[in-house]
Design a binder for these strands. Structure first.
Length: 210
DNA sequence: CTTTGGATCGTCT
DNA sequence: GACGATCCAAAGG
């Protein structure tokens, strides 16, 4: 598990706090898996029993158990019958919270990402780089993350996936807005707990994207 | 350009 | 039995 270009692993303490505080700080950090490397450009925060949009809202279950575990681990869930989404677990063990990775800027391994995203068929023309990781399910597909990756430790990186810091600071003034995909009846749909790098081409296309 | 509908199944009511 | 922390292709302006 080699790091990249002198980038350093994130400390576990980085994820020990409130996901609403941690999320914007993750903008600019790197996700690595083998030769794959990409920079985080869009995130959302999810809390616990006080956040009606969170998987942890109604307590611990088999699906969301990782959210209640120690910080700095990967929480991957299956949704819509065909997609996976990846989160970074926050808060100390026993307290559930996470940051959803919504979009990444591909840095290395674009061809491998494209191969996972667009299996078989067309090798050329090469897909636009912004089509590889510009959504929570897209980035999971590009990185090959599924329920088998749930619980991976992103700090030690022992399972082959880790978070790195190459010194790039988060934006001083990140763009902010409401979270994407919440139903009209969700009590927490107005919370502005989505952050992204202003103007980044890899940010997901949502109702109020960009 | 924007809008719509289909795919597809684990999870919780 | 209903509903997703989604994506894509196709249809409509």
């Amino acid at each position: 598990m080699s790091t990249f270009d002198g980038a350093k692993r994130l400390e576990r303490s980085f994820a020990e706090g409130d996901p609403v505080e941690v999320a914007p700080q993750l903008l600019g950090k790197l996700l690595q898996r083998g030769a794959l490397l990409a920079r985080i450009v869009e995130v959302e925060a999810y809390r616990d029993g006080a956040d009606a949009a969170s998987h942890a809202y109604r307590g611990k279950t088999a699906r969301n158990a990782t959210m209640f575990g120690p910080p700095g681990h990967l929480y991957v869930y299956f949704t819509y019958g065909m997609h996976y989404c990846a989160n970074i677990v926050c808060w100390p063990e026993g307290h559930a919270g996470a940051v959803l990775l919504r979009a990444l800027e591909p840095v290395h391994g674009l061809e491998e990402m494209a191969a996972r995203r667009f299996s078989n068929e067309r090798i050329a023309p090469a897909p636009r780089p912004e089509s590889l990781c510009s959504g929570p399910a897209k980035l999971c597909q590009a990185f090959g993350l599924d329920r088998g990756a749930d619980g991976f430790d992103l700090v030690s990186g022992v399972e082959g996936v880790c978070l790195l810091d190459d010194g790039t600071p988060p934006p001083k003034e990140p763009a902010v807005g409401p979270r994407v995909g919440l139903s009209a009846s969700c009590a927490a749909r107005h919370e502005r707990w989505r952050w992204w790098v202003p103007g980044d081409a890899n940010v997901s296309r949502g109702p109020v994207a960009r």
